[in-house]
C-alpha cells in the first residue's frame, strides 16, 4: 500500500502563500488538485478559519478565477450570512463566484464532487458545521480523486468539529490571533494562528502566526507581539504606536 501521494509530472504549480517557512514546510506552497482541510480551533474561531481559507482560495483564484463556495444551512446559522462586501474587502473576487447553500452534509459533498469535476473553476470551498457523518474515508477519497483529475483544489472548512481520518493532503487548525493594531487603537489586518496538524509525506506540527495582506493577496508573517506597526504607504506616518497590551505568543 502506498502512503505517499503520487505526484503527477504535469501537476499545476502550487500557490506560494508568502510566508517562507510555511511554504518550505509545504514543499513550495499550497498544492492544487488536492484537498486541504481547515479546522476552526474553536466554534468562535469560525470567522478566522474562513478568513484563512478565503485567503488561500483567493490565492488559487488569482488573477481572475471562478470559485464555488458551498455551505450548509447549519453553517449559515452558526457563522452568519456570507457577505460579498466583506469578501471584497479581504481582496477576494466575489463577482465571478458561485455561492450554494444546501440542506445536509450528503448534498454538500455531492455538490462538492460535481464542482471539483468542473475544471473551469479555480477552487472549491466547502463549509460545514459540526461533525460530518457522511464524510468517511471513502467520501474523502472520492473528493481527492475528483480534485486530482481536474486539478481543482478543495478547501474543506470545518467548524465545531474534531479532526477525523481523511485522505486530505494537509490539515490545518486556525485560531484568531491579535492583530497589529493601527493608530487610535483600531483593529488591523486579519491575523491568524495556523497550525499544520497533518501533511501527507511532509513535516507537520508547526505553527505560524500569519497576517493576510489584502493588497498583495498573500500572507505574511505577523509582526511579533509588541513589534512596530507597519506604516501604510498612503497615509501620513503617525506616532509609533506603543504596545497596548501584552500579547500571547504563537503556540
Amino acid at each position: 500500500m502506498r502512503i505517499a501521494p503520487s505526484p503527477t509530472p504535469d501537476s499545476p504549480a502550487p500557490w506560494a502563500s508568502g510566508v517562507a517557512p510555511l511554504d518550505a514546510a509545504l514543499h513550495g506552497g499550497m498544492a492544487r488538485g488536492c484537498v486541504h482541510e481547515v479546522y476552526a480551533a474553536d466554534a468562535a474561531d469560525v470567522a478566522a478559519a474562513t478568513g484563512f481559507a478565503l485567503g488561500v482560495a483567493t490565492g488559487f483564484c488569482a488573477p481572475a478565477g471562478g470559485l464555488l463556495w458551498l455551505r450548509t444551512r447549519r453553517a449559515v446559522r452558526g457563522a452568519g450570512v456570507l457577505q460579498a462586501p466583506g469578501w471584497a474587502e479581504m481582496g477576494g473576487m466575489p463577482g465571478p463566484a458561485l455561492v450554494g447553500v444546501v440542506g445536509d452534509d450528503l448534498a454538500l459533498l455531492r455538490a462538492a464532487v460535481d464542482g471539483l469535476r468542473c475544471a473551469a473553476l479555480s477552487a472549491v470551498v466547502v463549509e460545514s458545521w459540526g461533525a460530518m457523518k457522511a464524510l468517511d474515508l471513502t467520501a474523502s477519497r472520492r473528493l481527492v480523486l475528483a480534485a486530482e483529475r481536474s486539478g481543482v483544489p478543495l478547501l474543506l472548512l470545518r467548524s465545531d468539529a474534531s479532526p477525523v481520518p481523511s485522505a486530505a493532503r494537509t490539515r490545518w487548525q486556525v485560531a484568531a490571533a491579535t492583530s497589529a493594531g493601527l493608530e487610535a487603537r483600531a483593529p488591523g489586518a486579519p491575523t491568524f494562528d495556523v497550525t499544520l496538524l497533518r501533511q501527507r509525506s511532509g513535516p507537520c506540527g508547526q505553527s505560524w502566526r500569519v497576517e493576510w495582506d489584502r493588497d498583495q493577496r498573500m500572507f505574511r508573517e505577523a509582526p511579533l507581539s509588541g513589534a512596530v506597526v507597519s506604516v501604510p504607504a498612503d497615509r501620513p506616518a503617525a506616532q509609533p504606536p506603543v504596545p497596548l497590551f501584552p500579547q500571547r505568543h504563537a503556540a
Binding site: T50, V81, M90, G95, R214, D215, P232
Partner: peptide, 26 residues
C-alpha cells in the same frame, strides 16, 4: 446563478483593514 451573469465588485482602497465583515448574522 442560473441565467444571470456575474457583476463586478469594487476593489477596496489600498492599505486599509477590512471595514465590512465577512459574515453577517440575520
Amino acid at each position: 446563478a442560473q441565467g444571470n451573469t456575474p457583476a463586478p465588485w469594487p476593489a477596496p482602497p489600498a492599505a486599509e483593514p477590512p471595514l465590512r465583515p465577512l459574515f453577517l448574522f440575520d
